[in-house]
């Protein structure tokens, strides 16, 4: 065996493979299982990194193909995040695990937000909720959580990794204090999910201030943003809504 605790490692690899299998990512699952063989051997094969990279390519393909809508968006998300985290690992290995622990509170919050949007996603099927208005309002609520609770947390996590690649370690306090506007200036190129941030915020504000109007006949939602002090309209746009498309597909990406 490769390590004294290789049996435990094998169990963990099998658990990982099973997790992807349950998700329906069968090729990725198969690819993960193939790494068990290394644990049975005496040394790490020289093509290990190449093999791992191939696994990422398989995973990226299956991840992008999960839905018929927005495949390019999903692919780009995957590639950008992979590139940032890979750079951070190569810069900090073998201490990368410590950095993962440091950002755990952010990952935890990310998970909480994801649970809410996940529950909404599961219920967005027109067979489950027949009322169009209700589906539209739920999608709006999901947008609010995605922009406020997911995108900003993920932006903080990626910003942390980007700084690691430069040899800097951002403190958790500083990470808490920063916001997406500042992060956007520091992560170049801007990750796809942070693009058109101003528009996403306008829509979020319209939802938060109940200034959005759903028209079930045309299946569109109008979002209006009015500056409180001046009364000036800063945003007024009508976007197509389909219960099959999530807010990020409201043609603003």
């Amino acid at each position: 065996m490769l390590y004294p605790d290789s049996n435990r490692r094998i169990n963990d690899i099998n658990d990982l493979a099973n997790l992807f299998k349950v998700k329906g990512h069968l090729q990725t699952s198969k690819g993960i299982s193939s790494f068990v063989k290394i644990q049975h051997g005496k040394k790490i094969p020289s093509n290990f990194l190449k093999k791992l990279d191939q696994l990422f390519t398989i995973c990226e393909g299956e991840f992008a193909a999960t839905t018929t809508i927005g495949q390019t968006y999903r692919k780009t998300c995957f590639q950008e995040i992979k590139a940032i985290i890979f750079s951070a690992i190569s810069r900090t290995y073998p201490k990368f695990g410590q950095h993962m622990l440091a950002i755990y509170p952010f990952v935890k919050r990310l998970r909480q937000g994801r649970e809410i949007t996940g529950t909404i996603a599961d219920w967005m099927d027109p067979k489950k909720i027949k009322d169009k208005n209700l589906r539209a309002y739920l999608a709006c609520f999901a947008h609010l959580i995605i922009v406020e609770g997911l995108f900003d947390e993920l932006a903080r996590i990626l910003y942390y990794f980007v700084e690691l690649t430069k040899g800097n370690s951002v403190s958790v306090d500083d990470l808490e204090k920063t916001n997406v506007w500042k992060i956007q200036r520091k992560i170049k190129p801007t990750p796809i999910f942070l693009r058109k941030w101003r528009e996403k915020k306008y829509i979020r504000n319209a939802i938060g201030h109940a200034q959005f109007y759903f028209d079930p006949r045309t299946n569109t939602i109008r979002f209006v943003n009015i500056q409180e002090k001046t009364g000036k309209v800063t945003y007024d746009k009508t976007l197509n809504f389909s219960s099959l498309n999530w807010p990020w597909n409201w043609k603003i990406l």
Binding site: L16, T28, I38, F63, I81, I89, M100, D122, P191, W248
Partner: peptide, 30 residues
Amino acid sequence: MELEDSVEAFYYVILILRIYDLTLSKNPYK
């Protein structure tokens, strides 16, 4: 229906990276 794509991608990348750790690290459970 899928969850938010960027978050999902983040989790998948982190999960697969565990293979890196389990194969190369002397103590991946530290």
